[in-house]
């Protein structure tokens, strides 16, 4: 359920734009801010994302107590009892509370999986692009191996081996999703490696790690930032699929597991499936809107206007 490389086309076209952005650092802040404010999709996405994050952060105060506790009669429809505005599931658990606490799980897994994927992908991609030659050959082969293996199956295998918990799921998704970043970073480093400012840094005999981290990486950031939001979206979708298949953390309520539980009552109480799915769709939509917006803002020349 991942989307490795979906944005590659857009980013390949946009790669030279990063170079265009570099001069004129003083006017850049103002231009970026103006581009943000005049991009309605980006603003809407940011608003939804901030709302979801707010609910996730405040869940323990908004809905105190364990969301897995039975609180009312089972299968109350939304609006039937205003103490439980979104109804209750087959075990009498509050759906609204489950959604709020599920937001924590989805966002946490999404963010940590992306962080892991970004670290591995950047390390591999930067080394391959900067050093070239044999290092590049071997690392590119490795990237290709992980890109060929069906991501979702690999995540299932890893989680099955190491036992499901929120942390291991994040790790598995991160391990399976780094190739996109690696390819992107490698392409950026290959084009920036020959730039004048890198030559200057080399002639000052800076060490390779210093050039990679302090000189090239900041200039390679814009497309990486765009990919980050898409990666978080992917990770949330993957986690949802995994916990829908009852392979998620058994001690936590997540949106995917709510869909999985609600599926048994699909014919009668379909709202139990519809609500958590809508929450996933809304969150992923907001991340994609932010990603598209960032792409327009950071790479103004890209074709995906």
């Amino acid at each position: 359920m991942s989307r490795d490389g979906t944005l590659d086309g857009a980013i390949d076209i946009a790669a030279p734009a990063a170079a265009v952005l570099r001069p004129a650092p003083r006017r850049r802040g103002g231009r970026l801010l103006r581009a943000c404010v005049t991009n309605p999709g980006f603003l809407i996405g940011l608003l939804i994302l901030m709302t979801v994050s707010g609910i996730a952060l405040l869940a323990p105060w908004l809905f105190p107590g364990d969301p897995q506790d039975m609180v009312a009669a089972p299968t109350l429809w939304p609006g039937e009892d205003w103490a439980y505005p979104l109804g209750t599931d087959s075990l009498g658990r509050d759906v609204a509370s489950g959604l709020a606490h599920g937001a924590r799980v989805s966002l946490m897994v999404g963010l940590s999986a992306t962080a892991i994927g970004l670290v591995i992908g950047t390390l591999v991609g930067a080394s391959a692009g900067y050093f070239g030659g044999h290092v590049d050959n071997i690392l590119s082969r490795l990237t290709e191996v992980f890109q060929t293996v069906p991501t979702f199956l690999l995540v299932i295998v890893i989680v099955a081996i190491v036992q499901p918990a929120a942390s291991t799921i994040a790790l598995a998704i991160g391990v399976a999703s780094w190739p996109t970043v690696a390819r992107l970073v490698r392409a950026q480093f290959r084009s920036l490696r020959e730039a004048d400012f890198v030559m200057a840094a080399r002639s000052l005999s800076y060490s390779a790690p210093r050039i990679i981290v302090m000189e090239i990486l900041p200039n390679a950031l814009p497309p990486i930032i765009v990919t980050t939001s898409v990666m978080v979206a992917n990770a949330i979708l993957t986690e949802a699929g995994l916990s829908f298949l009852a392979m998620g953390d058994p001690n936590l309520v997540s949106w995917g597991s709510m869909i999985g539980d609600g599926r048994d009552l699909l014919r009668t109480d379909w709202f139990l499936t519809a609500l958590p799915g809508a929450a996933i769709a809304l969150t992923v939509l907001s991340l994609n809107l932010v990603g598209d917006g960032l792409n327009d803002i950071l790479n103004p020349r890209s074709g995906l206007a």
């Binding site: 869909i259 699909l266 014919r267 379909w270 499936t273 799915g277 996933i280 769709a281 991340l287 598209d292």
Partner: peptide, 22 residues
């Protein structure tokens, strides 16, 4: 398209069951 891009396929499948089968 953006909605399709953001919605988990298995959930679309479940909702399609509700509409087209049930």
């Amino acid at each position: 398209v953006l909605i399709f891009y953001s919605t988990p396929g298995f959930w679309i499948g479940l909702m399609a069951i509700v509409l087209f089968s049930v």
